[in-house]
Amino acid sequence: MRKWGAWATSAVFIYIVYLILTLWTGELGLWSLGELITGAVIALLGAIPLGNIVWKRGDVRLLQPHRWILFLFYLIGPFFFSMARANIDVAYRVITGRIKPGIVRFQPHLKTDFGRTLLANSITLTPGTLTVDVDDGTGEFYVHWIYVKNPEPRPEEVCGPFPTWARRIAE
């Protein structure tokens, strides 16, 4: 039962991407009949290998729509702001060359794959930090920090409010 659910969800996602790619191509409203049928076939076939991999740990809570709205808000608000700050920071370091690098470890207490991916990508794109490795069992993050202030940091020191956001969105 759960396997069928994962398969159907993946098929729907592939179909949506296909429909977005083929907008304004036909006479049946926005799409043509051939495109709709081809897309359905591709989605059903593509979901066979995808379904088992993506939803392996049962991250079905990600399908609740209020999480998507939260994600969009996060993307436009705090994430974009700190990304702009990150670029100014890199510009400063390119010009002055002041670096004091190191790889630190911290434990953000995230359990699902999507939460970890979201946090890792956020860390990589925000000021002065880069995810090097994530321990798959314990969920510890190994982060390359371009200017180490504290070799034993708490999560808030490295990446600000992002663990809270990742938990709010994905878990």
């Binding site: 670096i99 004091k100 690098p101 190191g102 790889i103 630190v104 470890r105 890792a120 990508n121 990589t124 880069l130 995810t131 090097v132 490795d133 190994y142 390359h144 180490v148 070799p151």
Partner: peptide, 22 residues
């Protein structure tokens, strides 16, 4: 992220690192 992990596993160490937990 994949490249950074691959580089660390391949034995490239950060230059002038003050701490390397990995």
């Amino acid at each position: 992220h994949a490249l950074a992990r691959g580089a660390h596993r391949a034995g490239v160490r950060p230059v002038g690192a003050v701490v390397d937990r990995l």
